[in-house]
């Protein structure tokens, strides 16, 4: 274990932690927008997949990475609109529609991928986002090396965490959005359009989760493969609960998941013979323990409750 604790092995491990936490960060931060407004974010997995696909195809044909991110965000938003309409306006069960959205995303992406690129063992690829050190910040000892020598999307992730925290804790609009989650009926009596708020919040989730997908195909790698979201959306769903519905808590949860992923790979690379399944299990075990100890604490009171004007269900 001794050679694990040198800076030479620790630094790459921590850098990889940040890189591998990034897709979770976008997904979880995105999910918080709908969760805070009282709509479950179980559809994340599908949004990631469609984002990864839209981002990759756009960059493949235009060679413009930023355009790819934009397309991914848009695709995520479009897909989340279906989910939002079904859940917010029609009162369908979120778990059901979330699964349907996942199936739909899996079907659409695989179908169009096969029709555009065919079936082959040779995959098309693009040049992904490269690391860009942040001036000044990257010079800070330790911290700079770990956090500020990454790619642009990672930095966007940091910004989103801060912005989301600020939005929900410090702005009136953020407070109103939270009211939709805590007690939509009280919000309604104040004359706030509950469904509209919820709908828009879910769209924001789609937008940010789409970027998470773009991270997978445009930054973490330079290709799209079928089902490449690999359950990251479901992990993000768990991370939101682990982080007690707070952006900062969720970010810490993402770092934990990222660390577990990176640690698993680094441990194996160092030649330790620990079954990889054990490391894969750890963050989920931790989530279960947290839930066991504190319940799904901090969940908005009106979470998952359908709102129809005039109907008092609470």
């Amino acid at each position: 274990m001794n050679n694990l604790l040198t800076w030479a092995t620790l630094l790459p491990l921590l850098q990889a932690t940040i890189r591998m936490a990034a897709p979770y960060t976008f997904a979880a931060i995105g999910g918080i927008y709908s969760d805070k407004a009282g709509v479950s974010s179980i559809e994340l997995e599908g949004l990631l997949l469609i984002g990864a696909f839209a981002g990759f195809v756009t960059v493949y044909f235009t060679q413009n990475l930023l355009l790819g991110v934009l397309a991914a965000a848009l695709a995520g938003m479009l897909l989340s609109a279906i989910y939002a309409y079904m859940v917010v306006f029609l009162g369908s069960k979120a778990a059901l529609i979330g699964t349907a959205v996942m199936l739909l995303a899996g079907g659409i992406t695989s179908f169009y991928y096969r029709s555009i690129f065919g079936v082959s063992v040779e995959y098309p690829s693009i040049v992904p986002f490269r690391n860009v050190p942040v001036p000044l910040l990257s010079k800070i000892p330790f911290i700079g090396d770990i956090f500020f020598r990454q790619n642009l999307l990672v930095y966007l992730g940091y910004i989103l965490v801060v912005v989301t925290w600020f939005f929900f804790s410090k702005t009136a609009l953020g407070l109103q959005c939270r009211a939709m989650g805590e007690n939509p009926f009280a919000a309604d009596t104040l004359g706030l359009p509950v469904r509209k708020y919820r709908f828009i919040n879910v769209l924001v989730t789609g937008l940010i989760a789409g970027i998470s997908g773009a991270y997978l195909s445009l930054a973490a790698s330079g290709s799209f493969v079928e089902n490449m979201s690999s359950e990251k959306g479901y992990a993000a769903f768990a991370i939101i609960i682990l982080g007690k519905y707070s952006p900062v808590g969720a970010f810490l949860g993402c770092l934990l998941f990222g660390f577990a992923d990176a640690f698993q790979l680094n441990l194996q690379a160092l030649g330790f013979n620990v079954p990889y399944q054990f490391m894969l299990m750890l963050p989920y075990l931790f989530t279960l323990i947290v839930m066991f100890v504190s319940g799904s604490g901090n969940q908005p009171e009106g979470h998952g409750k359908f709102f129809r004007k005039g109907a008092q269900i609470l």
Binding site: T9, P12, L13, A16, R19, M20, P23, L216, S217, A220, S221, S223, V225, E226, N227, M228, S230, D261, A262, L265, N266, Q268, A269, L270, G271
Partner: peptide, 16 residues
């Protein structure tokens, strides 16, 4: 299916 993880695994081995 996780291409990003494949890339990270390779980088970890190269670092070692």
């Amino acid at each position: 299916t996780d291409v990003g993880k494949g890339r990270e695994a390779a980088l970890a081995l190269i670092n070692n």
